[in-house]
């Protein structure tokens, strides 16, 4: 049995939960599951422009681990774009840097500064919040 994957650290949860192709599709083809750590590697390397060594340090995994995840992320994105598939961003072996919460009233995300529970959204003071975990 292979050893379980090392958990990678995620700085902030992805903004969107899924992406959908636009066009003539009567029948929705099955979706691509993009893991959160694959999204994070893609973001760090291509959006922030970091090197693999720097990204590995942030995510607390090995450099070669970053390269492996990046390879998978690129293949999945290319496949989704070519075959016009929906991309779901969820799951994977990861943990968040902070405790992240989402407010359902103003749709903002925020972290908790200490371990204690947060009762209300710091922006709109709404109590309709939920923790983002996964």
């Amino acid at each position: 049995m292979p050893r379980p994957r090392q958990k990678s650290k995620i700085q902030s949860p992805p903004r969107a939960k899924a992406f959908m192709p636009v066009g003539y599709y009567k029948q929705q083809s099955d979706a691509i599951q993009l893991k959160i750590e694959e999204f994070e590697v893609f973001r760090l390397l291509d959006y922030e422009g970091l090197t693999q060594v720097e990204a590995a340090k942030i995510m607390q995994i090995s450099r070669s681990g970053v390269a492996r995840i990046y390879e998978k992320a690129r293949f999945k994105l290319a496949k989704a774009l070519t075959e016009a598939k929906k991309i779901n961003i969820e799951g994977g072996e990861n943990m968040f840097d902070n405790n992240w919460f989402e407010c359902e009233r103003c749709d903002s995300k925020f972290n908790s500064t200490d371990e204690s529970k947060i009762g209300a959204c710091p922006l709109c003071s709404s109590q309709n919040i939920h923790q983002i975990n996964e």
Binding site: R15, N98, D107, K109, N111, S112, T113, P122
Partner: peptide, 11 residues
């Protein structure tokens, strides 16, 4: 995060 500031990310 190190200075334990609260981060609010708007959509």
């Amino acid at each position: 995060t190190e200075a334990s500031l609260q981060i609010i990310i708007i959509n």
